[in-house]
Design a protein around this nucleic acid. Sequence first.
DNA 1: ATTCATGCAAATGTTTTGCATGAGC
DNA 2: GCTCATGCAAAACATTTGCATGAAT
Lengths: 147, 147
Amino acid sequence: MDLNYLMDTLRSNGYKITEQRKAILQVLSDNSSSLVSVEQLLCEAKELNKKTNITTIYRNLEIFEKLDLLYRFVTEYGVALYKLACRESSHHHHIICKSCGKTEVIDFCPIDTFKHLSEDKNFNLTDHKLELYGYCDKCQYKKKVKI
Amino acid sequence: MDLNYLMDTLRSNGYKITEQRKAILQVLSDNSSSLVSVEQLLCEAKELNKKTNITTIYRNLEIFEKLDLLYRFVTEYGVALYKLACRESSHHHHIICKSCGKTEVIDFCPIDTFKHLSEDKNFNLTDHKLELYGYCDKCQYKKKVKI
DNA sequence: ATTCATGCAAATGTTTTGCATGAGC
DNA sequence: GCTCATGCAAAACATTTGCATGAAT
């Protein structure tokens, strides 16, 4: 994901470009192929800018999310994980590696299959959530669960 | 869901049947068609047994979950919601009302559709999560979001 | 110069834990 | 009587907020 696009979006929405913001965006960008926790984000952002503070992380994640720059995901244990949102992203689902957190986008959506089922149940279907879990290429033989 | 079955399961696993446990199970049973939060559970359990304590709720939810009596669900805001697990439950998904939390089971699973997609991506697929959201029969015209 | 962003500390909310007491078998 | 379950208080986390200071425009 393009850092310039991210910063332009911030600027055009009246947000200033600070060193901390740059560091956070850089970390998110470096990890754009997997989901990162706040803890990991803080840790890696500190490497880029020692001054980065946890409060700043939280405040910025909220902003990035509001601007649709960030995809927020909550694991079944209630832990929030983040990943930059694809700019061109239309509706899609993810396949997530349970070991390293790597995510891939799956364009196919099976939701139409459920349309008639929900009608049968008199549910007015508005949203859905589908996530596939497994082990990616590299992790298939070490299967150490991190998420 | 049958309270006797629940208590038998507890007993046969070495757990005692206390008034608090009965109250918690009763509340879960009364709400078996929707997801309840810990807060709601505490509130309703207190009506049945004033002595019921939040710590006891947490400890028991953990036990029930471990015995597969309870289905635990985490919303996108990280809030845990619970519902008794169906005894005969095989693999299935849920359709969840965003207003009242009512849930219905959907037996159909589209996961086979993704088998070849995950192979293309060299992902060894092990789990998945699918939830449908909408408004049930009764809530379609009041659409007040609670979950 | 003005406004927004940050850091610190404190507050909040949720869940967990230690320990003494009490209830179930 | 023994064991497990409970209640209380405190601890452990994750996240949010108030406020004064500092950086970006």
